[in-house]
């Protein structure tokens, strides 16, 4: 078989591309972690707090426009016309991934295509959250494929920066303990140190000062995190 070894003799990253890499990482991690958090809240809804989805909305920072747990399940997970739904998060991943095909490779993009196709199946939608274990599997495969296939460090770290930044944001929102948050912060710093161009140094410095046990739950910290990326 005659194929070209796709060795890139050059590493063209425009600022538009850097932007896409960052958002690809953020949205992909948002899909993965949202499903993770949702499972916890759905578990609570079984016998402890049937309205736990409301506190999910509060933590997520979204308005509770849902009439019931069932309505929430249907519309927050599968409704394409609902901008905050999980299916729409996946569409945002795909928007960015499609524009980055030559960097992340078709094999990586496949997991997003597969996820969207899976979520759109009526039999999956009838099952609710249980039917979405497959999406979690695909997202893990997606991250595995990113690590496995992307040789260019600048590209990989840019995506990872978005990923850990999103993870940091969500772990703080969902009241994780400081030691967990600190771990994620360290991983984010690692990707930033590799590719410092991607973040605002002054903001990072301030964030470092506030990333402490006493301070990390302050609303200001979330704001700092979300203004870290230099677009």
């Amino acid at each position: 078989m005659q194929t070209l070894t796709a060795t890139k003799i050059n590493s063209g990253i425009s600022s538009a591309k850097a932007n896409r890499l960052y958002w690809l990482g953020r949205y992909a991690e948002r899909v993965y972690l949202t499903l993770h958090m949702l499972r916890k809240h759905f578990d609570l809804m079984i016998d402890e707090d049937k309205d736990s989805y409301i506190s999910f909305c509060t933590k997520m920072g979204i308005e509770n426009k849902y009439t019931s747990a069932d309505d929430f399940t249907k519309r927050y997970l599968f409704d394409c016309s609902n901008p905050e739904s999980v299916i729409n998060m996946l569409e945002r991943v795909k928007d960015n991934a499609m524009m980055l095909r030559e960097e992340i490779m078709t094999e990586t993009l496949c997991y997003i295509e597969l996820s969207i196709a899976h979520m759109n199946k009526p039999e999956v939608q009838n099952k609710g959250i249980e039917g979405l274990q497959r999406i979690t599997d695909y997202m893990l495969a997606f991250w595995g494929s990113i690590d496995e296939r992307i040789v260019n460090n600048q590209i990989r770290h840019s995506i990872k920066f978005g990923k850990y930044l999103e993870s940091l944001d969500l772990h703080i929102r969902f009241d994780y303990q400081f030691n967990r948050v600190e771990e994620i912060f360290a991983r984010m710093l690692h990707s930033v140190e590799q590719e410092c161009y991607i973040c605002d140094e002054l903001t990072l410095l301030t964030l470092k000062q506030h990333m402490t046990f006493d301070d990390y739950k302050n609303i200001g910290v979330l704001q700092l995190i979300n203004s870290l990326f230099r677009s």
Partner: peptide
């Protein structure tokens, strides 16, 4: 668009948008 991005990947060249 599928073709543009697929060929860029397989030929190992950069996919550029006008702004780039």
């Amino acid at each position: 668009y599928f073709e543009h991005s697929y060929l860029a990947e397989k030929a190992g060249v950069i996919l550029a948008f006008a702004d780039d």
